[in-house]
Amino acid sequence: MSFSPARLLRAISVSVAVAALTAATVYIVSGLLFPVKGVRVTGNHVVSDGEVRAQIPDHSSLLTLNSGLLIRRLKTDPWIEGVKVIRNWRSGIVTVEVEERRAVLAANVSGRRIFVAQDGTRLPGSGGARLSPVNLDHYELGRVVENVRVLERNGVRVQEIGGVTPGGVHARVSGREVVFYGRVTTAQARALKEIMRRNPTAKVFDLRSPERVVVGSSGDAGRG
């Protein structure tokens, strides 16, 4: 049995119409039965609640809300590092848990002020962080950023790069000073985390010796 082009076209048109009608029905029914009644935003300090809520269309449904698309859209903002979307089927509330990046470095590079997060992402501002600007060239900036990444990946939370001198880079970690120069290794970063835990009253931790962590006092930092 053969179909003429006209009959085949009609069959395709009917199939498309049925699919469209089905999709519309699902959308309407899901919106009536499982409407998004509110959006709760947590974890944000720089990004506003309104910026997050604006990514969820009006009259959205819990059933058809595309969490993956929402997460991808929100993560285009350089401040947003991670997002988790939680639906509450009883209340109709969608909770968006935001993890923001932290500005840890304000660098003057070739006449420009650059703000950098703990993972190396360039940020549009300080996000309210009180950072002391340091003067760096492009090579020094890359080296400092990579060392901060190594520390962060190994559980050492960097709060600020507070100074760069011929004697080294001075970082603030949990209110204490960490000094490094050149390349910080993974082994050093892991050792630093454990040594800081074991020495809660020590003020300075020196990573300038290869593969070593030296515990010192505030006078041992060698800022000159």
Rank of each mutant, 00 (worst) to 15 (best):
T95L: 07
W79L: 08
H59S: 14
G92P: 10
T64W: 05
E100R: 03
V98C: 06
R53E: 15
V96M: 07
R87F: 11
E97V: 13
K84V: 14
P78H: 10
W89C: 07
W89L: 13
A54F: 02
N88W: 03
S61W: 00
L62Y: 00
Q55T: 15
V83Q: 04
E100D: 09
R73S: 14
A103Y: 01
V104H: 07
L69I: 08
A103E: 01
A54V: 01
L69R: 14
R87V: 11
V52Y: 09
L62W: 00
A103I: 00
E51H: 12
S61I: 01
L69S: 11
E81I: 01
R101G: 09
V52C: 06
S67V: 10
E51N: 13
V96K: 03
V83A: 02
R87P: 03
A103T: 00
L105S: 05
I80V: 15
P57W: 01
L105C: 08
V96G: 10
I80E: 04
E51Q: 15
V94I: 04
D77L: 10
L105A: 04
I56D: 13
E97W: 02
R73F: 06
G68C: 09
I86G: 00
I56L: 11
D77N: 15
L74Y: 04
I86F: 08
I86C: 01
E97T: 12
L105Q: 05
I56C: 13
I93K: 04
T95A: 07
R90V: 11
S60M: 09
L70A: 13
Q55C: 13
K84I: 08
S60Y: 06
H59F: 15
V52I: 15
R90D: 12
R90P: 00
L105P: 06
V96H: 07
S91A: 07
L105R: 08
E97S: 14
L70G: 13
L63H: 07
L65H: 05
V52S: 08
L105K: 10
S60H: 06
L105I: 07
H59E: 14
I80M: 11
R87H: 15
N66H: 14
V85I: 13
I93P: 01
P78T: 10
V104N: 08
I93S: 01
G92V: 01
G82R: 15
